[in-house]
Amino acid sequence: MSYLSASNMTGGYGRGADILHDCTIEAAEGEIAVIVGPNGAGKSTAMKAVFGMLNLRQGSVTLDGEDITHLTPQDRVAKGMAFVPQTSNVFPSMSVEENLEMGAFLRRDNITGTMEQIYDLFPILKEKRRQNAGELSGGQRQQVAVGRALMTQPKLLMLDEPTAGVSPIVMDELFDRIIEVARTGISILMVEQNARQALNIADKGYVLVQGRNRFTDTGEALMNDPEVRKSFLGG
């Protein structure tokens, strides 16, 4: 039973043309599901459709068995979704700690324990907690963005291009932290340009082409598929 099931999604932005065509994305509890594909394949659009940021003309989204197709993004956050966009994902003029506190805006309980867990996961954030997020490196800002999303105590964490613009060393470190998050039982749905590295850590992989599912399999199987390797992984 998938924790997230986004089935047969067809839709686009506003009254524009459909970008997604019968697209299906699923993730089980504690599973890392990765969406890869060429530029313009509809990867980020599929993620936004799951989060309720565009209208679906067909299809449905269920979370833990509950149909949430018509819920707003805010209501989906309350149901356990957290979304980290690729850009503009921190408040640059606020400190690291204030950014994390902003992630807990819906909570009415004590957030200290969650904050400590995030500092354990990303020790550099504890060290720089009084520093403005805008002064951090790209990789550190991504850690703030992921940390802020985790402050909502999500069951499903969605990451749009989390390693965009960071060095290979920082990318490996971020992927290690993502694996750690998944081991706590949180489902991860991730769009990633670095397809080979992302499929390497994926339990499940989706290759999208022009808004449609082209290949769906385990990360390992897709890495070993000759056609996927030739067309999408550079041979």
Rank of each mutant, 00 (worst) to 15 (best):
A182Q: 04
E29M: 12
V34G: 01
L63I: 14
M171A: 14
V144E: 00
Q193W: 10
F175A: 06
G11A: 08
Y119W: 08
V96A: 04
G40K: 04
M115P: 01
A104N: 03
T152P: 03
I68A: 08
G16V: 11
V191A: 09
G165R: 04
E31F: 03
M171H: 01
R130F: 06
L71H: 11
S88H: 14
G30N: 07
A17C: 01
L222R: 06
S2N: 14
K128Y: 06
D64T: 01
T87C: 01
R130S: 13
F83C: 11
E116Q: 13
S231Y: 02
N200T: 15
R57V: 00
G59V: 02
L208N: 10
R229Y: 04
Q210E: 14
V34H: 02
V191C: 04
V36C: 14
G113F: 03
R148M: 00
G113P: 06
A28Y: 06
V228R: 02
R108F: 05
Y13A: 08
E173Y: 07
D109C: 02
V144I: 12
L20A: 07
I35A: 03
T72A: 12
E173T: 06
K155Q: 13
V170Q: 11
G59Q: 05
R57M: 00
G165L: 08
A28D: 14
E116V: 01
S93H: 13
S231I: 11
L174G: 07
D176L: 10
N200W: 01
